[in-house]
């Protein structure tokens, strides 16, 4: 927000136009009214308020009730929904933390791969070679597909008994069918693999944009100092990419923590709810069992946790800078 559009600093304006007679209301056309900025912001605020602010606050309200949208009576239960989530014997607490574990595991397994592989890819695609544009498009292509398409596609490929991948493996002499979608650890291999294949193109493009902003003079200087390729990468590329890395890390952590479609469509939470992620469990409790108050409470806990994680990201990468 710029200072000149804010009220409370009229001195600048007066100083700039000394010859002007004392202002009358309606002022000169180029002098913004105090509420002008808010009028400009209004369209966004309206949408933000309707789709973010009101749902967020009403969700908090909901989480304090035993809330079923379709029933007229929604008794106030105070913090009971939250207390239930922290009562070790309570069933819902076990299920919720089990689903948080699944989400956490997915983040831990997928984020490093989604940070490293796209970076390597971006470095390759930043070289000059024939067909570079083609390859950039190819690696980005899966990202434009919707999660339902991805789910259906990989369902056909990974199916244990009738899938294409096991079919080819059998022809290569693998006698035992691999339960890609029904047993650990294969479920995690499948989910992480599919997600990496699907979304690495996006991270690559962000890295690529960052790489193109690195000043060539820095590499020249490093070469003059006798730095080899690896040293150039560590001492020039990485520090220059730090803001981009922070962005990619934050976005990837949030995206992975919100994973829903892949496990919903591919594994349906199997085996033993091992791959039922937090969002999936929240949807089941809130939108299938209609225990909306409880689901809202879980959503708030998840959101709080993600805010903390994102804040830590920022702190961690900022400290290194100083």
């Amino acid at each position: 927000m710029t200072a000149t559009t804010l009220p409370g600093r009229p001195a600048d304006d007066v100083a700039r136009r000394p010859a002007e007679p004392p202002r009358r209301s309606p002022g000169p056309p180029h002098r913004p009214r105090p509420w002008t900025p808010y009028v400009f912001l209004a369209p966004f605020l309206l949408i933000f308020g309707t789709f973010v602010l009101v749902p967020a606050v009403s969700g908090l309200w909901m989480s304090l009730h035993n809330w079923d949208f379709f029933l007229p009576d929604r008794p106030f239960v105070g913090l009971q929904n939250y207390i239930d989530l922290f009562t070790p014997d309570a069933l819902v607490a076990q299920q919720f933390w089990e689903s948080m574990r699944a989400t956490g595991l997915f983040v831990v397994l997928s984020v490093p791969l989604l940070m490293a592989i796209p970076l390597g890819l971006a470095l390759l695609l930043n070289q000059r070679f024939r067909g570079r544009t083609f390859f950039r498009a190819v690696f980005f292509a899966p990202y434009v597909l919707g999660v339902s398409v991805i789910g259906l596609l990989w369902q056909y490929l990974l199916n244990g008994n009738t899938g294409l991948i096991n079919g080819y493996l059998a022809e290569l002499g693998v006698t035992e069918a691999v339960p890609w979608l029904t047993a650990t650890p294969w479920v995690w291999v499948s989910l992480v693999g599919v997600t990496v294949w699907w979304t690495m193109g996006f991270n690559s493009v962000v890295y690529l944009a960052g790489l193109q902003n690195v000043d060539d003079a820095l590499y020249d200087a490093a070469k003059v100092d006798g730095a080899n390729r690896w040293q150039q990468f560590v001492h020039v590329t990485i520090p220059q990419l730090r803001p981009v890395l922070l962005f990619v890390l934050t976005m990837t952590v949030l995206a992975s923590a919100n994973m829903f479609g892949q496990s919903y469509l591919l594994t349906a939470g199997n085996p033993s709810n091992e791959t039922r992620t937090a969002i999936m469990f929240i949807a089941e409790v809130g939108l299938e069992q209609f225990r909306m108050g409880l689901a809202a409470a879980m959503s708030y806990l998840l959101a709080l946790l993600l805010i903390v994680v994102s804040a830590l990201n920022f702190l961690f990468l900022r400290q290194k800078e100083s």
Binding site: N159, G160, N161, T162, A177, P179, L181, T182, A183
Partner: peptide, 13 residues
């Protein structure tokens, strides 16, 4: 029955 069968496997088979 084979192991790890899904609903669609059974009808495909």
């Amino acid at each position: 029955s084979p192991r790890n069968v899904s609903g669609s496997d059974a009808s495909t088979a």
